Each structure stands twice: as C-alpha cells, then as structure tokens.
Simulated scan of single mutants.
Amino acid sequence: MSIDPKRPEPAEREELARLLPLAPERELSGRHQRALRDQLLREFRQDSAGGARPRLKVRHLKVAALPLAAGALALTLATSGVFGQEGGTTVSGTGTTAAPGGKAPATTAAAVVLLDRIATVAASRPAFTVRDDQYVYVASKVAWSVQTDDDPLMRLDTPHSRKVWFSVDGSRAGLLHEKGKRIPLGGDLDKDGNPVPGDEPGNPSPNLNNPTYRYLETLPTDPEALLEKIYDETAGSGPGPDQEAFVTIGDLLREQIAPPEVSAALYKAAALVPGVTVVDDSVDAAGRHGVAVARVHAGQRTEWIFDRRTLEFLGERGVMLEDSPEGRRGQITATTAILKRGITDRPGELPARTG
C-alpha cells in the first residue's frame, strides 16, 4: 500500500490556518513542527503560482484483511467499530468520499498537521514510573450501542461510570467496576482484591488487542514500523485493513497508559492511515467539546476527541452517516469520556497521581 497524503485544497488552507495555532505552548511544536509549517506555506505559494505539486514519499506497507479489534467496543459494536456524531460538526477536507476504484480517500493535510501537533504534545508529557506489581487505572464515562435478536436496531445505553485496573505486566488479575458490578479480569479476586491462588494470571500473552503497560513499552517508536506491525498482526478478517488499523490505534490509546514516545508514535502512525479527516467540533460522553480526528467506514464515522487548547485525549464517539437496517443517519452509536488515569498498588484502589 502506498501512503500519500493529498495536498491541501483551497478550502483546507483556511482550515489549516485555524488548526495550526492549536498547540498550547509554542515551544511544544519543536523543530519538526516549524519545518512542517514552513513546508506547508511553501506548498501553498507553489500551488497558487501554478508550480509543481511535490509528493511525500513513504515506503510501501504490506497489508491484508484484518480482524475486528477486541475490547469493550468489539463486544457491543462488532459490526460498526466507530465513535462519531454528525450533528453540529463539520468535516474538514474532502476525505469522506470513496476514491475511484473503491480505494480509501487520502488523509487530509489538516489531519496530518493536527496529529503531528498532538504527537508533539504527547511526547512532551512526563512518563509514569511503574513497577511490575502495580496496576494501570482508567476511569471513564461510557455508553455503548447494543443489538438483540428481538430488536435489530442499535440502541445506545445510558452513559455510566466505568473503572478498570489492569496489571502492569499482566501477571495478576485485573478488575472492572461497571454498573454496580465488580468483575475480575483474567482470574478471580478474593475479598481484598488479590488473585485467588491457582488461577491463571491476568494477561500472560498481551497483544495489540489486549495490551499491558509493559507490552506497550515494547512497541516501535518509528511510526511507519509501528503501523506495519499493526497491519501485519491484525491481519485475517474485519471491516478492512485501514479501518481496522485506525480502530486498533484508538483502542491502544483509550483504556490504557502508554509511554509518551509510544503515544506520539501511535498518533503519527494514524496520520499514515488513508481516509483520516478532522471534525471541527465533537462532544464526548462528559459533554466536553473538542476537535476530533476521524475516519469514515461503511457509512459510519469514528472520532477521537481532543481538548482544543491542551490537545489532551478526551474520548471517542460514533455516528451513523447513512440510514441502514441497524439505525438512522445522525444516530449516536457510542460515546466515551476518559476522566482519570493513574497507577495504583492494588485493584480497587484510587491512584495518588493521575494523568
């Protein structure tokens, strides 16, 4: 697969000019960000003068059919895999219409710039210091769509609190608190929150669809190498290689903590996936507005929402862009909001430090 982000159209130039100041601190952009801005300005001038249109050369990636990503979304939205809402939003660029020959449209220049800024900010954040016997804690507010045999329409659940504790190295059982239930993850826990002796460890074989913090530490920090790993290791089935790659990256960013350099690489890898666009205004499950990075697949849109000022990851949402037997245009299919992340010494404990 050749990855070749398209050059900005006139309408996108205005959008880029608005998006470029998004970084909260000028020094966060760094040399790479200044070079990217200079390059875009040069291209704008060349295009206005009728000059040649340069191409970004990127090595080809080996791709195949991909399976549906695991996790809570896969359990409830196995046929959609999206987070997005159409009402009240504007998609920048023209990357939502299928290209000739059925190929995915190019990722818009606005999305490339925004993801580069998000990656720069993510790389600048301090890393957590963690021990193997500790737990990653993530608190969120979520609502998933469900279907039943009696009702084929997707029905969005009521937004509710969700808290998870994942073993840092996967050697211990985790814990989920949701809808008043206390659910062990990867083995049973006793009344004190400790693994029951003799049970299988919590996550002895972590992977892209079921990672641990230690697993995330091993991922490549080169965006192209990381994206090739995602394409290769999720090959087999699913809605399509590009959509599956986008959803997998979103899963890795949502309900885990990744080292700063890995988070940055994931955002830059997302910019290499064809068909990624920007949504000017999106709202997470907590009602927070932000700018979103999005991708459309099979009439539905996946959005990752970020704080417009700090570029902090807020959450995700999903929308149907076309009528279907499962729902109607504009229907929200899922919504999430990340409220807190941190490290604890045991499942069920709240962290002293959050991020």
Rank of each mutant, 00 (worst) to 15 (best):
334 A>Y: 04
82 V>A: 15
33 Q>D: 13
168 V>H: 14
329 R>N: 10
209 N>K: 11
264 A>W: 09
169 D>R: 07
291 V>S: 12
102 G>W: 06
58 V>D: 04
352 A>D: 14
352 A>H: 12
162 R>Q: 15
149 D>N: 11
92 S>G: 09
216 L>F: 04
170 G>I: 01
298 A>K: 15
243 Q>L: 02
330 G>S: 13
43 E>Y: 06
330 G>Y: 08
141 K>Q: 13
12 E>C: 05
18 R>M: 07
55 R>C: 02
264 A>I: 01
283 V>K: 15
352 A>Y: 01
313 F>W: 07
339 L>Q: 15
101 G>H: 08
46 Q>F: 03
351 P>Y: 01
219 L>D: 11
318 G>L: 11
336 T>L: 12
313 F>G: 05
162 R>P: 00
249 I>T: 09
196 V>W: 10
35 A>F: 03
121 V>K: 12
273 V>T: 07
114 L>P: 03
30 G>D: 08
281 D>T: 06
56 L>A: 09
157 D>K: 10
169 D>W: 03
85 Q>P: 01
137 Y>K: 06
16 L>I: 15
22 L>T: 11
340 K>L: 07
247 V>I: 09
184 P>L: 08
182 R>S: 09
218 T>N: 12
189 L>H: 13
139 A>D: 13
238 G>K: 12
346 R>I: 01
202 G>E: 07
261 E>C: 00
295 R>D: 05
57 K>N: 11
224 E>F: 01
34 R>S: 03
22 L>H: 10
213 Y>P: 00
